[in-house]
Amino acid sequence: MSIVIAGAGMHPWGKWGRNFTEYGVHAARAALKDAGIAWSDVDLVVGGETVRNGYAGYVAGSTFAQALGWNGARIATSYAACATGAQAIDTARARIMAGLSEVALVVGADTTPKGFLAPNAGERWNDPDWLRFRLLGMTNPAYFALYARRRMDLYGATSEDFAQVKVKNARHGLENPYARFRKESTVADVLASPVVSDPLHLLDICATSDGAAAVVLVSAEYAKKHGIAQPVKVAAVSTVTPTFPNTVIDMPLLATDSSAVTGVPDHTFKESIARAAYEEAGIDPSDVDVAEVYDLSTALELDWIEDLQLCRRGEAEALLRAGDTTIGGRIPVNPSGGLACFGEAVPAQAIAQVCELTWQLRGQATGRQVEGAKVGITANQGLFGHGSSVLLSV
């Protein structure tokens, strides 16, 4: 059974300081309107959990269903850090494929604090993130910088290359009405911004934002029967972990004892995500026309281009310098403007990527359209060695 995106909707990203539910309802109603489907016809609501917004955030599926008006729909809630939205989409897709749902609404929304995202207060000695933040002082920009330094050492990347990623994405985001930051940047602007974690500057790193995104999923048969225009096929959803050649069952926490895993992994978990998506969809990386990737930092975008097999290892800088990753180039990356223009609204961002690709594949991305796009892929990094990729096609 083929599952399609019948509708997509978003609430603009920003720092609005309002309840996350308000953003989610806005996005949900926009997605339903786009699909031409009434709320009363929705029989499943999957909410992306947002851990910073109290109990309502922990039961996001129920929260959104209540706010939209109880209609008897079944409820699910997903959490996978930055891969939350893709996992929520996968949950909805699976229930439709199993014949347990006909019309699923997937919603993610967040209200974020100012500054870097950090674990909630309190001592949690079995939480690798808590250990990383509290004991090592490794906030997210610190390990973004390690990724960046690795590219510099292995492939000759420069700070100017990283800055050029920001320049490209800022230019793309100018025409996106949902983007928070709609202002052009220059390489000089990026390099003149404060150094946060060498070699990354402030403008190399995405902000935290409020925002929301939603999609309506139905079967291809349902879409045809109800005359839904321009459905976009969900060709694959991947939320896999890496594969090691030798893994001990009942292994201890890897943050404190890595002896349970030996040998070199078959490939990195980010490569695993892409491979699983391509294999499920029966699509080759060379068929991809557009990509929305997780640019928490500018250097990470370059890694993702290679992880998605859109070029060989060490070639992402060459693609960037040649203009191949900009709109009009061989493989446009982040035509939405990416997190550089949106910032993080954690449970919403993977859904927002799917919204953007839906509009791209329909030819509706006014001002930032990738002409003739028929296949698009997303990528997100979650926590604890997993992430997500969604492949869409027409």
Rank of each mutant, 00 (worst) to 15 (best):
I5L: 15
W16R: 11
A27K: 08
R29M: 11
R29C: 07
A30F: 09
A30H: 12
L32R: 06
K33E: 15
I37E: 05
A38V: 02
D43K: 02
L44T: 04
E49L: 02
E49T: 12
A56N: 15
G57T: 03
A65C: 06
A67G: 09
G72D: 10
Y79A: 08
T84G: 13
D90T: 00
A94R: 14
L100I: 06
V107T: 10
G108N: 01
P113M: 03
G115W: 09
A118D: 01
E123R: 14
W125T: 15
D129T: 11
G137R: 09
Y143A: 03
D153M: 13
L154H: 06
S159D: 07
S159A: 12
D161V: 08
V167F: 00
N169Y: 04
N169I: 12
A170Q: 03
H172F: 06
P177R: 11
Y178A: 15
Y178F: 15
R180Y: 14
F181P: 06
R182I: 11
S185H: 08
L191A: 04
V195H: 03
V196I: 15
S197A: 15
P199I: 01
I205N: 04
T208Q: 14
A212T: 05
A213Q: 06
V216P: 06
L217Y: 07
S219K: 06
G227K: 11
Q230L: 06
Q230E: 15
T241K: 07
P242A: 09
L253H: 10
A255R: 07
T256Y: 01
A260R: 05
D266Y: 14
I273M: 09
A274F: 01
V288M: 04
V288H: 05
A299T: 01
L302T: 00
L308R: 03
L308N: 02
R312G: 15
R312C: 01
A316L: 00
R321Q: 11
T325C: 10
I327C: 12
I331N: 05
I331W: 09
S336E: 10
G338K: 04
L339P: 04
A340C: 15
G343C: 03
I351T: 09
Q353C: 04
Q353E: 03
V354L: 05
E356W: 04
W359I: 02
R362Q: 14
V370N: 10
V375W: 02
G382M: 07
F384R: 00
F384W: 13
G385T: 08
S388T: 06
S389I: 06
L392Q: 12
L392R: 10
